[in-house]
Simulated scan of single mutants.
Amino acid sequence: MAKKRIRIDLEDTDGAKYNFNIEGNITRDKVLKIFELMDLMNIEDQEEAPQLDSVGAKIWHIVDKYFPMGKFTSTEILEKYEDEYNEPVKLSIISTYLARFNTKGRINRLRNGREWVYQLVKIPQRAD
């Protein structure tokens, strides 16, 4: 089995750079601890506008903007994509990216008859 590795590089508003590397037996708890540490250090994502320089980024923007809580299909993403960006895209491209997002753990997918139904994966917030 291949060794798992996660690397997170961040820069805060003051220009300080942070590098986090996790190797080996990576668990969800270990990743959540890194995010908690980032929260304690008050490191936040400072992007005002998302970088929409690729089809994948545009598809992810549609998923995050229109379906943050509910379920959706690739056809619904296709419709929103064409409305939002006013450019055509093939359904197979949408399906490929959604499958990749599923493999990366960013969305869940379930079979519903002849089609896949997707839902955004949210990391639960701890109540302090």
Rank of each mutant, 00 (worst) to 15 (best):
M1E: 12
K3W: 06
K4R: 04
I6D: 02
D9Q: 11
E11M: 00
D12R: 05
D12M: 03
N19K: 12
F20T: 09
N21S: 06
E23Y: 15
N25H: 14
D29N: 12
V31A: 05
L32T: 13
F35Y: 15
M38C: 15
D39L: 11
I43E: 02
E44T: 09
E47F: 06
A49P: 01
A49L: 09
A49Q: 10
Q51K: 15
S54T: 15
V55A: 14
A57Q: 07
W60P: 01
H61N: 11
K71S: 12
K71R: 13
T73F: 00
S74Y: 01
E76T: 03
E76P: 06
I77M: 11
L78K: 09
K80Q: 15
N86F: 07
N86W: 11
E87R: 05
I93A: 14
I93Q: 12
I94C: 02
S95F: 03
T96V: 03
T96A: 04
L98W: 00
A99L: 05
R100N: 06
F101K: 02
T103L: 06
T103A: 08
T103C: 01
R106A: 08
I107E: 06
N108R: 13
N108Q: 14
R109H: 13
L110F: 02
L110I: 08
L110C: 04
N112Y: 06
N112T: 04
G113A: 03
R114L: 12
W116R: 13
V117M: 10
L120N: 06
K122W: 04
Q125Y: 10
R126S: 13
